[in-house]
């Protein structure tokens, strides 16, 4: 697959924006400024970016509890995102959802989700709708290795293949279901093998290599768009931070050496080295991308901190729709 310089730079920019967004959010959570729990995407940026550069606003995604990276990559408004993390009225969900329910339906982002494995059935519904309405929109369902053990994934995979729905199952295998290592939660090594059970292609992809992700995602999305049915992509990746926050909850479940080994293949570093070698992105230009991302994130944080909390009366709003679809 030929990749234009513009696309390469776009990939890099999206990854840096996710990295910066998450690092700052993690610090704010651990400083007690952001309430609740954040599940951070650092280490997995190549997956969201490599998939999302192929998508239009009218294409949908379903996300996970680790969902900020997906929305940043799909073009989410950082101000509305940070305001939501802060629980402010100006947030994406008016402060009613928080990190685990962040969403932007106008961008086709059908929500982060607090329930592991909730996305696949919703994704096939969006894909069914795309087909029903005669569009060529595609739905990408992000889920983790842990979610691949939920019945919902298997039901949705079966139905997607049966109905030849325009959906791509993008498994982010970061090696852990919460704190439980993959070999202790499933007997298969490659989750992509499970695709055979549903009559769809299953492909293992290096999830740390943004170009490999870009290529595999491009083929699967094109296949879905052409009406040829679903694909299961398994991205082998790694969570640099803890399950929750940066330092996490103090649960000992992996060695620092293992984290350092994966960090040697930091997806942001890998793509920067590659682009530098190809003469597309100088170290100075790369630094400028990081600075611009940090400026945007700081602006978003300032916006959030200056934003009002919801009025108490908002508690009982948005439970039901009062409008009517049909007269």
């Amino acid at each position: 697959m030929d990749i234009s310089n513009g696309v390469l730079l776009d990939l890099h920019r999206r990854m840096v924006r996710i990295r910066t967004f998450e690092e700052e959010a993690g610090k704010l959570m651990e400083a007690g400024k952001i309430p609740g729990a954040l599940h951070l995407y650092v280490g997995e940026e190549a997956v969201a970016a490599g998939v999302m550069v192929h998508l239009r606003d009218s294409d949908q995604i379903t996300s996970t509890h680790r969902g900020h990276g997906h929305l940043v990559a799909k073009g989410g408004d950082l101000r509305k995102m940070y305001a939501e993390l802060y629980g402010r009225a100006t947030g994406y969900c008016k402060g009613k959802g928080g990190s685990m329910h962040i969403s932007d339906l106008d961008l086709g982002m059908l929500g982060a989700n607090g329930i592991v494995g909730a996305g696949p059935p919703i994704a096939i519904g969006a894909a069914f709708s795309n087909k029903y309405r005669g569009t060529d929109n595609v739905t990408v369902c992000f889920f983790g290795d842990g979610a691949s053990n939920e019945g919902t994934f298997h039901e949705a995979a079966n139905m997607a293949a049966l109905y030849k729905l325009p959906v791509v199952f993008a498994c982010e295998n970061n090696g852990f279901g919460e704190f439980t290592r993959q070999e202790r939660h499933q007997a298969v090594h490659d989750i992509a093998d499970r695709a055979a059970g549903y009559g769809m292609p299953g492909i293992v992809v290096d999830g740390m290599d943004a170009l490999a992700v870009y290529e595999a995602a491009g083929e699967a999305i094109a296949r879905a768009r052409a009406g040829s049915g679903p694909t299961l992509l398994e991205f082998k990746t790694y969570r640099f931070f803890d399950h929750v926050g940066i330092r996490g909850m103090g649960v000992i479940y992996r060695e620092d050496a293992e984290v350092l080994q994966w960090r040697e293949r930091d997806p942001v570093g890998l793509v920067e080295t590659r682009l530098a070698e190809q003469g597309i992105l100088s170290p100075e230009a790369a630094a400028a991308v990081h600075e611009a991302a940090l400026a945007d994130v700081r602006d978003a944080i300032a916006f959030a901190e200056a934003s009002p909390f919801p009025e108490p009366g908002a508690l009982m709003e948005d439970i039901y729709t009062v409008s009517r679809g049909v007269a």
Binding site: Q60, T62, L105, L110, A118, P120, P121, I122, A123, I124, G125, A126, A127, F128, S129, N130, Y132, R133, T139, G151, T152, E155, A156, N158, M159
Partner: peptide, 15 residues
């Protein structure tokens, strides 16, 4: 679960 989720995804996208 698959059927109910399909309904939700379809409803959220205009059906």
């Amino acid at each position: 679960s698959g059927i109910m989720g399909l309904g939700l995804g379809a409803a959220a996208t205009g059906l």
